[in-house]
Design a protein around this nucleic acid. Sequence first.
DNA 1: TCATTAAATTGTT
DNA 2: AACAATTTAATGA
Length: 250
Amino acid sequence: MPKPRSPEGRSIQSRLRPPNDAELRAIPWLAELEPAARRRVEPAIVVAEVQPGELLCRIGGAPNYWFGVIEGLLKMSNDRVDGSPITYSGLPPGGWFGEGTLLKREPYRYNIQTLRRSIVAGLPSDDFHSLLDFSILFNRFIMNQFNERLGQFIAAHETDRLNPDARVARSLAGLFNPVLFPGVGGNLLRITQQELAYLVGLSRQRVNEALLTIQERGAIRIEYGGLRVVDLPALRSGNFGRNKAAATAA
DNA sequence: TCATTAAATTGTT
DNA sequence: AACAATTTAATGA
């Protein structure tokens, strides 16, 4: 697990800076806005580099920003009563989250933690709400986002009881959702097996085994420091071995 | 640009 | 959890 970052560095708040051009281009919804809306909101966007293990927001915190991943990898998790964390989703580049919490003006109901060094963007709550007020295209984007997330949520729920191979497959399929995470360019996702293990809640060994199985089935190609999707529908369906013998025999 | 070395990641036990 | 093998990144000639 990434060691929780000690308060050695300055707080994230104090490290905020304006985004550069490349970072702005990595924000998917900006390009969809009306030109006037974009001009108005762009100056409000801030970005920060966050180190592995840093907490962007914790349960109970007041929602100040709508967050997005420019680069890197985050995870969204919750703590169960027994203290064991349950991960809801990984957040690869292009993913924006927290709009539900902002809308309800409620405290965060999950923890967002960085799995590796990442660049994170934030749109202040006030600007988020004013965008909702005057940009129809932004509303459309948010609706789309909700819709996709609902699908993801249902898929995740089904996945819970499946065997490890299928869980890994479905988690991967979730990360490759082009609507929620358009920053995952092409079909290559940069994620180490260790990071994936944290997301899925399995050991790295088991994830490694699962990935090899999935690769054998032709759904992905494993690469150093990441992997490539060959057959996304197959990943989603998640019909992966109850046991390896049956898998290879078939 | 190439060779060397360190660090990160993967595949196995 | 530990280990060896492989890949990448960094460095300097």
